[in-house]
Design a protein around this nucleic acid. Sequence first.
DNA 1: CTGTTAGCGCGTTCAA
DNA 2: TTGAACGCGCTAACAG
Lengths: 336, 336
Amino acid sequence: MQKRITIKDIAKELNVHHSTVSRALRNDPRVTEATRDRVLACALKHGYQTNMNAVQLRGTSNNTIALIVPNINHTFFSDIVSQLTNLAYTKGYIISVFQSNEDYEQEVGIVNTIIKQNYAGVIASISKNTTDSKHFNLLRTFGIPLVFFDRVCNDIKTPKVLVNNYEITFQVVEYLIENGYKRIANLTGPTHINVFNDRQRGYADALKKHNLDYQHQMVIKDDFTIELGVESLNELMSEIEKPDAIISSSIILTIGLVVRAREMSLKIPKDLAFIAFGNHISSLIMQPQLTSISQPENEISELSFDLLDKMINKEIPIGTECTKVVKAQIDYRESC
Amino acid sequence: MQKRITIKDIAKELNVHHSTVSRALRNDPRVTEATRDRVLACALKHGYQTNMNAVQLRGTSNNTIALIVPNINHTFFSDIVSQLTNLAYTKGYIISVFQSNEDYEQEVGIVNTIIKQNYAGVIASISKNTTDSKHFNLLRTFGIPLVFFDRVCNDIKTPKVLVNNYEITFQVVEYLIENGYKRIANLTGPTHINVFNDRQRGYADALKKHNLDYQHQMVIKDDFTIELGVESLNELMSEIEKPDAIISSSIILTIGLVVRAREMSLKIPKDLAFIAFGNHISSLIMQPQLTSISQPENEISELSFDLLDKMINKEIPIGTECTKVVKAQIDYRESC
DNA sequence: CTGTTAGCGCGTTCAA
DNA sequence: TTGAACGCGCTAACAG
């Protein structure tokens, strides 16, 4: 490995001062076109690349945005990763994605790395096991802009992009009730996360409005998997009062439910109806097709990016509270 | 925003020299336990975080590995992202993921960012539109270790982890022929990418061995999507000699094929058989279940990480050629 | 238009 | 055991 080429090397080769090289490389008008051309040619010849560590050390910020997601395997998050990456690219940023793996410790490690490396900004959705928000507060201390989306820390003052989970769940439950379902179960995540909390409240309130007795909120603390779906259905169907409809916070989980329901020879939607959050291609390919609740990933991506961009450009000061709510929609298919 | 706290600030507050603080923070034995404790307490109090830009500027490397994938939406890649992230975490690294979006320009931008930021190493799978490998060669110039997996640049000397695409495709075609299929089409990606090239050769050689006339390699240059699957089936079925079986390089594409086949009232696998590369949950949930070819993501992740780790620790010198081949397997289900 | 100088935060000399 | 001084690569301020 050869030594990394620096502006000083170029300066020496061209018999100019390194500050001239620096200016030439950044198209500073105070340098002759002739020297600029020589510098650029020389830089190209040697494959010169700015050492961002030196630049950032001086206080100038970079153009890399960190995106923290709980799990890249879930369509909701991977879609947002894709869209944000493209969006950011057109605006001259680079997106660097970190997966917390639904783990608080890893999330803390990621945030610390982001601080140590001086990223331009952070877009984050928190892990299921995050109850403490110290690490995100630290970002503010270091002047790094932060935008939350979907799963957020309630106690942190920063822009947030949310989905109307309460309303849509309420609406979904009413839809099921109107279609004759009376024992509706809700499979969801831990209450301390806003998303699941909202869904639980929407569910409970809709049941209350229609005076239904049966109420079953089943909380899944770990990552949503097919296996957990299978187990959950076993558990639900071994109870005395079995559900006739299940709302699930994850399509992957729902696939486990459906696979197990088929094994049990339950007819969908006659014996058991399903509805799940998320728009996964499986919803289309399975028979009956899965009724699902799609969240506007593109809108979430655009709003989040826009807010962060404005924070980076100081149009929105750090610590500003500002919450945008986007609307989910029910994709009516055949499973209810 | 308050000023970022540095070792000098801590030094001033504690009336010691900043070099003492530096030593204390890194558990240098040459410092009194008493002063060390004072320093650590003070650092904790102020939420001190090392400025990695300064550290790296001095030449010390960091612990962040860059992972470049064409598209995070595809299960194959998102699984590898997940697994590598976990694996790296247990070994003290942080994985930062970049998506090239199957775009050469973006890939170049990503590699430049990696160089500018001095990452510890790179694990990469190239985009479909990458025909030139200059940017990856640049990594070597800057002494940054590189490991390729799955889709690789053939002309770059560096460790690679590959899948036995030729053999498995050959085997799959023979399996179809043995089951009576005679007009087998192959939907795949551009020939200049090793993965698709291997599959095309495996396909062609198997046909030749069994003296089958019908040969149809359909190359998809863009990202594999459901829509492209639908279009592809339209095209294939509008020909005079229609296929009776389709091998596809992507499950997502295959879902498009299947959706369209159902619309055309084609019976699967009687009228048309399907087999696809990838292990996606849709394979299980659709009826008939999709026969597919699963690639050992965990093995690929482990081998790739292990090779990169060794390169970072100088156990394997940069520029070493070393190719590991892992075995895909056919998951026999109902679609053939 | 170009050169000089200083300093960003850190770790590593070398000296005390 | 601690302090002083230097330099990593770069840019901004100032001087010529």
